[in-house]
Design a protein around this nucleic acid. Sequence first.
DNA 1: ATATTTTTTTAGTCTTACCTAAAAATTTAT
DNA 2: ATAAATTTTTAGGTAAGACTAAAAAAATAT
Lengths: 219, 219
Amino acid sequence: MATSLAEENYLKIIYRLSENTELGVSTNAVAELAQTKAASVTDMLQKLAEKGWVIYQKYQGVRLTPSGQKIALSIIRKHRLWEVFLVEKLGYNWDEVHEIAEQLEHIESESLIQKLDEFLDFPDRDPHGDPIPTRDGKMADQIYQPLSELKEKMDCVLMGVAKDSAVFLQLLTKLDLNLGAKITILEINSFDRSLQIQVNSASPIFVSHEVAKNILVKA
Amino acid sequence: MATSLAEENYLKIIYRLSENTELGVSTNAVAELAQTKAASVTDMLQKLAEKGWVIYQKYQGVRLTPSGQKIALSIIRKHRLWEVFLVEKLGYNWDEVHEIAEQLEHIESESLIQKLDEFLDFPDRDPHGDPIPTRDGKMADQIYQPLSELKEKMDCVLMGVAKDSAVFLQLLTKLDLNLGAKITILEINSFDRSLQIQVNSASPIFVSHEVAKNILVKA
DNA sequence: ATATTTTTTTAGTCTTACCTAAAAATTTAT
DNA sequence: ATAAATTTTTAGGTAAGACTAAAAAAATAT
Ligand SMILES: [Mn+2]
Ligand SMILES: [Mn+2]
Ligand SMILES: [Mn+2]
Ligand SMILES: [Mn+2]
C-alpha cells in the first residue's frame, strides 16, 4: 500500500520512540517529535491502525506492527544512505545533512536506493555512526557506548553520536571531536560529572556530562 | 515565498507550454499535462495569480510573470541536474530517469544544487540533450533541429530528443540511436515521410516521420 | 477515597488540492 | 447572424492533515 509523506514521518517517529522501550509510545511523545498537537496525532494513529501499520488502542499508546516497522526501516535506510552521499560525495559536513536527508528519504524508487547503495560502496554506518538498515529490513545493534559511561584513565575512539542536531554536531567539530577521534579520559569531576579529556593527544579540554552522554565510543 | 509541490508542477507545465508560443496558455492544455480537470486548473491559476507568479485573466489563458518564470527555471534546472546525476553517476539509462527526477526536482536546498552541479562538473546539457538553466535562471536556446527537417544525403549527429517518454527513448536505444550517434539520411519516402537512415555506418534502418520529428541533430 | 492535574480523545473548523455538474463565455459551423 | 459545439468558469463537495476547545479517561496528590 502507498504511504504519504505524513504517514512515513509518523511511522519513523514511532519507530524511534519504540527503540528504547517495550511499552506503547504515548500520543504526547509523538506529538512533540512531529511538532504537532496531540489531537492531530490521535487522528493519524487511528488512520495508521486502519492501514495495519500500528496497533493502537485508546489511551494505551501505540506500537508498530511488522509491516509498519518494515516501512519505518526503509525510510531510515534511505535517510542514512543519503546522508552518506551528502558527506562522502558532495563534501557536506556532518552537521549539515540531516535536514536535506529528511526530504530525500521520501523519494520513492527501489532501484534508486539500490544504485545509491552500490555507488556508496555499501556503507554500513552513516556519518553519525548510526547503522544503516539492510535492504531486507535488518538493522545492526548500536554496539557503542556513551562516553559518559567510561571511567577515568580509559582510552576510546569516537564512533558515533546519539543525537544529530546541528548545534551539537557543530560543537563537536569545534572541539575536534570527529568520527574516529581518539579520546583519553583524564578526569571526571564528581561535582557535575563533567569530563576533562584529551582528543587526538592535543591539549586537554572540558566537556559536560550532557555532551559525553551523546558521544558514542568504542573502548 | 514558499512554493508547494503542486504549485511548482503547475509553473513548470505553464513554462513548457509557453516555450513555443507568445500567446497565453490555455486551461485545457495545462489540464492535460497536469493530468487533472480544467476546473482544478482554473482554481490553481487564480491562486498562482494572487501570488504574483502568473498573469491570468478569465478566458484569456495564462502566462508566467518574471518571478513565476524564475521558479519554473529553477525546478527545470534541478530536474536536469538530477537526471545527469542518475545517468552519469548511478549508471541509469536515459529512458529510466525522468520519473525519479520528477520527484528529486522538488527537494529544497540551494547548497545541495550548488554542490551537485559542482560534483557533476557543471554540465550544460542533460542526458536528453536539453540545456540546463544556469543558477541565475538563464537557459541556452535549443540549437539543434529535428531530424525530420533535413534533406536526403545529409549527415548529422544526434544531440538530443524533443520528448523524453520512456517508450520513445527505449525505441531509440534499441535502434542504437544514442546521444552522439552519427546519422546519414539515405532516403526520404515521400509517401509517409519515413526515412531510411544509417546509424554509425551500420546497416540501414527505417524510422517514421514521427520518430524523426523527435530526434534533434546537429548537421 | 476523593480531588486535582495531566493526558488523551472527540467534535467541530480550516486549508490545499482535487472532483462533478451546471452555467457562462467563446469559438466554429451553418 | 444564429445555432451548435467547445472551452472555461463557478458552485458545491470530498479527503488529507492540520488546528482549537471541550469532554473523557487516567494518573497523581491530598
Ligand atoms: Mn539524520
Ligand atoms: Mn544520521
Ligand atoms: Mn525529464
Ligand atoms: Mn531531460
